[in-house]
Computed example of a mutant assay.
Amino acid sequence: MRRVRKSEQDFPWWLLTLVGIGSYLFWRVLSDDLYAQVLQTLSKGIGITLFVTIIGFGMAASLGLLLALAAGSRLLVIRQVARFYIEVVRGVPIIVLLLYVAFALAPALVELWNWIAAQLGLNPVRNRDFSLLWRAIIALTIAYSAFLAEVFRAGLAAVDQGQIEAAEALGLNRWHRFRFVIFPQAFRVILPPLGNDFVAMVKDSSLVSVLGVADITQLGKVTAAGNFRYFETYNVVALVYLTMTITLSLGLRKLETRMRRGHER
Rank of each mutant, 00 (worst) to 15 (best):
A118M: 02
D10Q: 11
F180K: 01
Y230N: 06
A167R: 00
A71T: 10
L66R: 03
G56Y: 04
R229K: 14
W13S: 07
A214M: 15
I48R: 01
V151S: 08
R5A: 11
D129N: 10
K44F: 11
V199F: 10
G195H: 13
R126P: 03
L25H: 03
A214G: 09
E8H: 08
Q119W: 08
L39P: 02
V151W: 06
T247V: 13
K6A: 13
A166F: 02
A169T: 10
I164L: 12
F187W: 15
D33M: 02
R265S: 06
G45F: 03
W27Y: 15
T141F: 12
D160M: 01
K221Q: 14
K6D: 10
A139M: 13
V92K: 05
A117K: 06
V110C: 06
S249R: 11
M1K: 03
D129E: 15
R74I: 03
N227V: 06
G162E: 09
Q40K: 06
Y85N: 07
L242W: 10
N235K: 00
N127A: 06
G155M: 05
I216F: 08
F57P: 01
F180C: 04
L255G: 06
F11K: 11
L109D: 04
R74D: 07
R229V: 00
G64H: 05
Y234P: 10
I190K: 08
K44P: 00
I138F: 15
I54R: 01
Y241F: 14
I86V: 15
V222I: 13
L122C: 00
K203H: 12
S145G: 09
A136T: 14
W13P: 02
W134A: 10
L109N: 01
A224E: 06
T17L: 15
G45W: 06
G251E: 08
S62L: 12
L50P: 00
R260S: 12
I54S: 01
A60H: 03
G22C: 09
V208M: 09
L207S: 12
E165G: 03
V92G: 02
A214L: 14
V213H: 10
T257P: 00
F180R: 05
E232S: 09
L191C: 10
R179A: 13
L109R: 00
G212E: 09
I48T: 14
L42T: 01
F26T: 08
A104Y: 08
K254T: 13
T41W: 00
A154Q: 03
L39Q: 01
R153A: 12
L75E: 06
Q9S: 06
A158D: 11
G91F: 09
Q163H: 12
Y24H: 03
V38E: 07
I94D: 12
L25S: 05
L34K: 08
R128C: 00
V96I: 15
Q119N: 02
I246M: 13
N114M: 07
A106W: 04
T41G: 05
V125M: 13
R229T: 02
I86T: 12
G58P: 05
S62R: 02
I95Q: 10
M244E: 04
R79I: 11
R188D: 12
W115S: 04
V222D: 14
T245H: 06
G226R: 15
I86N: 02
